[in-house]
Simulated scan of single mutants.
Amino acid sequence: MKRRGDHSVPSRKIARKSSFNLVKLPNDVIQSVFQYLAASDIINLASTCHDYRNELIQYLYSNIKVRWNDLIDIREKLPPVLNRYASFIKYLRIIDYYSYGEWQIDIFQNVLTKLPNLRGLLVNSINSSNWLKYRTNSKIEKLTLYFDISANCPLPHQTQVVSTNPKIFHLAHIANFSRLTHLNLSSYHFNWDPSDLMPENHLQSLTIENCTWEYPFQLSQFNHYNTLNFCQITYSNNNPFILSERFTNFLNDPLNAKSTSLQTLFIEFKHYDDINWKKHLSLKQFQTLIDPSKFPHLQCILLHGWLFNLRSFMHYVNQNFLKLEMALLDLLVEVTDSDISPDNFQSFRQSALRSMTEHHPNVRFKLDLQLPY
Rank of each mutant, 00 (worst) to 15 (best):
K294T: 13
L298T: 04
Q221A: 12
K270P: 02
I267E: 01
L183K: 01
D148P: 01
E334A: 15
F88K: 06
S47G: 13
H271V: 08
V335A: 11
F348E: 10
F286R: 03
R119A: 11
L371N: 00
C231Y: 11
S195P: 03
L155M: 07
L71T: 03
K279H: 15
R3M: 14
G5A: 03
Y85K: 06
V66N: 00
S32K: 06
D274Q: 15
L283H: 03
K90S: 13
T144L: 10
L328R: 11
N137I: 13
A46N: 09
L329T: 03
D51V: 10
S282M: 07
C49G: 01
S18P: 08
F217V: 09
H224M: 07
F190K: 14
F295T: 06
N237D: 11
P154T: 01
N44W: 08
N130G: 00
V363S: 02
Y188E: 02
T336Y: 03
N191Y: 08
W213Y: 15
D96P: 02
L303Q: 01
Q31L: 12
F286W: 11
V123T: 01
A46L: 08
L183H: 00
H173V: 05
K284A: 09
F20I: 09
H271W: 12
L322M: 11
D193P: 08
L206Y: 03
S236G: 09
L328D: 10
F308N: 08
Q232N: 05
D273T: 14
T336K: 05
R135T: 02
H7L: 11
H182C: 05
L118V: 12
L122V: 04
S259A: 13
T48E: 12
N191V: 01
Y91N: 14
R364Y: 13
A46K: 06
E209D: 11
G5T: 07
Y235W: 09
S129Q: 04
F34H: 04
V317T: 06
A175N: 04
Q319A: 05
I233R: 07
K77A: 15
G101M: 00
T181F: 00
D70M: 07
Y52M: 14
T264M: 06
P79D: 13
D368Q: 04
K323H: 15
E200S: 09
D330H: 12
L92M: 05
G5H: 04
L71R: 02
D70T: 09
G120D: 01
S19Y: 14
L332A: 12
P342W: 00
N226W: 03
N238L: 13
H315F: 11
R93L: 07
L281W: 05
N276R: 12
Q263I: 02
L265G: 01
E200I: 12
G5P: 01
S40Q: 13
S19V: 13
Y272I: 08
N229I: 08
G305T: 02
L262E: 03
I95W: 02
S293Y: 15
I301G: 02
H224C: 09
S40F: 08
E76V: 13
L265F: 12
E325A: 11
F241V: 07
L283Y: 07
Q204I: 04
P156E: 04
Q350K: 10
Y52G: 01
D339A: 05
A151G: 08
K139G: 06
V111M: 03
L302T: 05
N184P: 00
N44Y: 09
P342C: 00
